[in-house]
Design a protein around this nucleic acid. Structure first.
Length: 492
RNA sequence: GCCGCCUUAGCUCAGUAGGUUAGAGCGCCGGUUUGUGGAACCGGAGGUCCUUGGUUCGAGACCAAGAGGCGGUACCA
């Protein structure tokens, strides 16, 4: 019982929903961002970086005289008592930036940005409280041409990350169409109908998960799930439910067919007609640039859950290589999305500032890509130069520099321990080659290079330690001035 | 927020009916081997048994509350 008095140590742990990212993940995410940035840059977009903190009201949060900030954001009070919060997306900060620098910016202002965003919500599998988004937006362009540009950009990013045509699809819809349908069903296209419209959007968003029946319940009175939780419905009448569900299944593979169907569906609604007209414009530009239905389709079942979209909306989806029974590619999910949001900037200025953009979740996209190509691996481990003799450290670093100059990743062992330790380190790092140069080699003017992969292979056939240690077949020596060339040869 | 499951070593888990000093495998560190990563053998470190309270002569085990984790559902401006 009389345990020795233990020092109270802090427990090494991280807050839930916040992740440490390993080198492999970091490298694949960096490649993804680089590919996207190069597409945006080539299209004339400019990079922008905004701070992680914004004033809470800028983010669209009202924090009246409350001690606790609203849930959903990480907020704190500055020393002047003002509420600041970590950004939860990159769009609200962009709206602030544009409004703040409006006169100095050439419109349309088109920028791209990647960075961490923060959401104070319950984390789940694949859902974190900090995650990286990569956005491109176009502010100040009212027409569907700007939306089409974003759609083509999204398709180009898919291509730039190495996806073949058929491996992805951009699905396009238009909020105005649904507004038109709802208007015809008695939901006014005004402020009063906003909450109801949002409920409709969220219900449609759950189509793939709940099926038509579940969505019908959510569009009507409401729905109770298996755990007994009740979700209030959008309270549409039976005809409304039918109209909305009919709309979500109205799209076909051919964009022209879809437009014809929709034109008859929206009838005389002005919002609906405007939506169809925009799709026509989008289709015309896509057609001229050869973005066929194998890359971009019109799909009335995608809506995006957010309330701030006002016009065309779209999602980028990865299609797995596997086909379902009917021979169609299986959906593995949306990796990004975007759309038109005409009211976000005008919040700050009281003057119309139309905007449209595209955003993808970097981690989700990167891990989906990794699932598609598991064989694609990251950076190869560096050549490890063992610190055999501490007197020769200068020479070791010089050798490492020579390797780097030849484009080979290399490092000198700077830790503690004998050669056995150092080789064990090299092994753990996954290095293919280790360089050994001690007094023997120095005398002969040579360098010993050990092939660790070959050594591991040979070890399988050897069970005796003495034999294993004396076996030198996995290593070779070369003259000091042949060093870099030999490494090159052996790493091939 | 609501519902369910779970919590013993770094990891995966065992722990007999409530009974001294809480175990195993893997991993880690060291040695056999101070110029060679594997294997084998030997040794070692590492635990507030999630926390608090209760029942009991006695709790890792039984009871209660709380915390944390996992899953589902809702929310996600």
């Amino acid at each position: 019982m009389a345990k020795k008095n233990k020092i109270q140590r802090p427990k090494a742990r991280r807050p839930r929903g916040f992740e440490d990212k390993s080198s492999d993940i970091l490298r694949s995410e960096a490649r993804l961002i680089e590919a996207a940035f190069s597409v945006y840059d080539a299209n004339g977009f400019e990079p922008l970086q905004t701070p992680a903190f914004e004033y809470a009201d800028v983010l669209g949060k009202f924090l009246p005289d409350e001690d606790r900030p609203n849930v959903g954001v990480f907020a704190l009070r500055d020393d002047d008592e003002q509420w600041m919060a970590l950004r939860y997306d990159l769009t609200a900060p962009l709206a602030r930036f544009v409004a703040e620098n409006y006169d100095a910016l050439a419109k349309p202002y088109r920028r791209y940005q990647a960075g961490s965003v923060f959401r104070n919500e319950k984390p789940g599998p694949g859902r974190f409280r900090e995650f990286v988004q990569c956005d491109a937006d176009s502010v100040g362009a009212p027409g569907a041409a700007a939306d089409t540009e974003m759609i083509m950009l999204a398709a180009d990013v898919m291509k730039a990350v190495g996806l073949e045509t058929g491996g992805y699809v951009i699905r396009v819809n238009n909020r105005k169409l649904l507004d038109g349908i709802l208007e015809a069903s008695g939901v006014p296209n005004t402020e009063e109908g906003a909450i109801q419209r949002l409920k409709v959007l969220r219900a449609i968003d759950k189509l793939d998960r709940l099926g038509a029946d579940g969505v019908a319940a959510l569009l009507g009175e409401g729905r109770e799930d298996e755990s007994g939780d009740y979700t209030e419905g959008a309270k549409l009448n039976a005809a409304g439910v039918k109209a909305v569900l009919g709309f979500t299944t109205a799209s076909a593979t051919d964009r022209g067919d879809t437009m014809n169907t929709l034109a008859s569906l929206v009838g005389s609604s002005s919002a609906g007609q405007a939506g169809v007209d925009e799709l026509k414009m989008i289709d015309a530009i896509l057609g001229a640039c050869d973005y066929g239905p194998d890359r971009v389709v019109f799909d009335t079942s995608i809506v995006r859950g957010l309330g701030y979209y006002t016009g065309p909306v779209f999602e980028a989806e990865l299609l797995a290589d596997i086909k379902d029974k009917k021979g169609r590619p299986v959906r593995i999910g949306s990796v990004g999305g975007g759309g038109r949001y005409d009211d976000l900037v005008s919040r700050f200025r009281g003057q119309a500032v139309p905007a449209t953009g595209f955003s993808f979740g970097v981690s989700r996209f990167a891990s989906a890509l990794a699932r598609l190509n598991p064989e694609q691996q990251g950076e190869s481990a560096p050549v490890i130069i063992c610190a055999f003799d501490r007197e020769l450290m200068g020479e070791y670093f010089k050798m490492a520099a020579e390797l780097r100059a030849a484009g080979i990743r290399a490092e000198v062992f700077v830790g503690a321990g004998n050669v056995a330790k150092q080789l064990k380190y090299a092994d753990r790092r996954g290095a293919k080659l280790a360089v050994l140069m001690g007094s023997d080699e120095l005398e002969r003017g040579e360098v010993t290079i050990k092939d660790l992969v070959l050594g591991a292979e040979m070890a399988k056939a050897i069970s005796d330690n003495k034999e294993w240690r004396e076996n030198k077949d996995m290593q070779r020596s070369c003259k000091r001035d042949q060093f870099v060339a030999t490494i090159k040869e052996m790493s091939a």
